[in-house]
Amino acid sequence: MPRRRRQRRRLQGEVELNLAAMLDMAFQLLAFFILTFKPSPIEGQVNLRLPPPHPVTATAGEQAGSDTKNTNPLQGMSSLVISVTADAGGRINSLAIGETPVANMGLLATQVQQMFADPTLGFDQVIIQVGSRVRYEQLMQVIDICTQAKLPSGEFLSRLSFVELPM
């Protein structure tokens, strides 16, 4: 008998939540998030260490011209110098590694990869001499080639410096 009484009391005091108000608020929040949603663009990046530009350095213990038997102008250098100049529209019109002109980007990529893979040359960074008019998009193609070069240690090249040329 007391059990029946308890059940009846429960049924009489049943609380019904008004969900409509909560749903209104939830829809308002949803509308806010949908209207302010801006998917961020897919972007990549090229990570670089940019020490301040400094003169092309000879490897430790060597002075320029001290080795009279050395006929390779690049031997004894730790920095590879690449020169990039542009036409009036900012497009690359000449490329060079050191003093040697390079015909196109494909050749530049091949030569840079060969030089960095050779442990006897000992290059560990690139100095890019860039004409002031070169557009960023064009420069990034050269940076792309450099950062794809692997050092003898197996790491990708990341040390670059930029020097501005007055043209």
Binding site: I42, E43, G44, Q45, V46, L48, R49, L50, P51, P52
Partner: peptide, 15 residues
């Protein structure tokens, strides 16, 4: 940036 001591750079590009 270099004069102020920054050394690590990330150049953004579209893959």
């Amino acid at each position: 940036c270099q004069e102020n001591g920054y050394r690590k750079f990330a150049l953004k590009a579209t893959p």
